[in-house]
C-alpha cells in the first residue's frame, strides 16, 4: 500500500495496490482520473492521489486551473440575462453560460417567481453537468422542495479565491484545520455571513460594508500569499488594528 498523497503527473501509473477494493461497492473515480478499459486508471492532472476505503473512492487533489462544473457543486453565479423561462447565469469568466429555470426556486409559481436583473447574484446547485449540454442550475432541492440556503444573494460582495481555497472553505471544520482566518475574524466580534461557491467565488455580507471588505481582504490575502495558520493570525491582527 503506497502512502497517502502520492504525487502524480498526467499519465503516471498508479500502483494497483493503492487503488481501494471493496467486495460490494463499485469503485468511484473522483476528479483528475480517467479509466481506460479494461483496467488502467490514469491521472489526467498533476496533484496528489487520495483514497477513501470506506467509500471505495480514489481522486486527485490539485489546486488551480479553471472551474469545470460537476453535478451537485454549489456555485455562486451572476445573472447575465433572462430569456423565455430561464435565466442565463455566468459561473466562470469566459465560459459558456449556465441556465437556471425561473421555476427552480423555493415555492415559486409563474406569478411569484423572483425578478432577478442582470448582475444579480445567486447561490445555486449544479443540477446537470454533461459535456454535450448546457450546465443547468437550481436553487431548490428537487426532493424536498426546500431552498436549503440556496437562492438570490442580496447586498454583500463577491471575492475571487483559488479553487483549492474554495474547496477547503466548504469542508467541515474537522477536515479543514489550517484555514482559520474566518474563525479568527468571527472570534474578534465581526458580524458577517459567508457563502462559498465551488467555482472560486466567496460572497461576504450581512454586516457593515467596512467589515465585509475587511473579511474579503483577509481571505484574498490568505489565498494569494498562501498563508499558514500563524500568518493568518498576523493578517487578521493587522487588519483589525487598521479597522479602529
Amino acid at each position: 500500500m503506497a502512502e497517502e498523497g502520492l504525487f502524480v503527473l498526467p499519465g503516471d501509473l498508479i500502483d494497483p495496490s493503492f487503488i481501494p477494493s471493496h467486495p460490494k461497492k463499485p469503485l468511484r473515480l473522483g476528479p483528475g482520473l480517467r479509466h481506460i478499459p479494461p483496467n488502467s486508471i490514469l491521472p489526467t492532472v498533476s496533484g496528489q492521489v487520495y483514497t477513501d476505503n470506506r467509500k471505495n473512492s480514489i481522486w486527485v487533489e490539485y489546486n488551480g486551473g479553471r472551474y469545470v462544473p460537476s453535478t451537485n457543486d454549489q456555485v455562486i453565479g451572476q445573472i447575465q440575462r433572462s430569456a423565455g423561462e430561464h435565466y442565463y447565469v455566468n459561473i466562470a469568466p469566459y465560459a459558456s453560460n449556465a441556465v437556471l429555470p425561473h421555476l427552480a426556486f423555493e415555492g415559486v409559481t409563474k406569478k411569484t417567481r423572483p425578478q432577478l436583473n442582470p448582475g444579480a447574484l445567486v447561490y445555486a446547485r449544479v443540477a446537470l453537468a454533461h459535456k454535450h449540454m448546457d450546465v443547468e442550475l437550481e436553487c431548490v432541492s428537487p426532493s424536498t422542495g426546500k431552498a436549503d440556503g440556496l437562492g438570490p444573494l442580496v447586498d454583500g460582495m463577491v471575492f475571487n479565491v483559488s479553487l483549492g481555497l474554495a474547496r477547503r472553505l466548504s469542508m467541515s471544520k474537522k477536515e479543514n484545520s489550517k484555514v482559520i482566518v474566518l474563525d479568527l475574524l468571527g472570534d474578534a466580534g465581526l458580524v458577517f455571513e459567508v457563502v462559498v461557491g465551488r467555482n472560486g467565488r466567496v460572497w461576504i455580507g450581512g454586516g457593515s460594508v467596512a467589515d465585509t471588505v475587511l473579511v474579503g481582504r483577509a481571505l484574498t490575502q490568505t489565498d494569494e500569499e498562501d498563508h499558514g495558520p500563524e500568518a493568518q493570525k498576523n493578517v487578521v491582527r493587522r487588519l483589525l488594528s487598521e479597522r479602529k
Binding site: 503527473l9 498526467p10 499519465g11 489526467t44 492532472v45 498533476s46 496533484g47 486551473g65 479553471r66
Partner: peptide, 10 residues
C-alpha cells in the same frame, strides 16, 4: 500542467 488541463501525459 499549471492550468490543470486534463492531459494524457506530459
Amino acid at each position: 500542467v499549471s492550468a490543470a488541463v486534463p492531459m494524457k501525459t506530459t
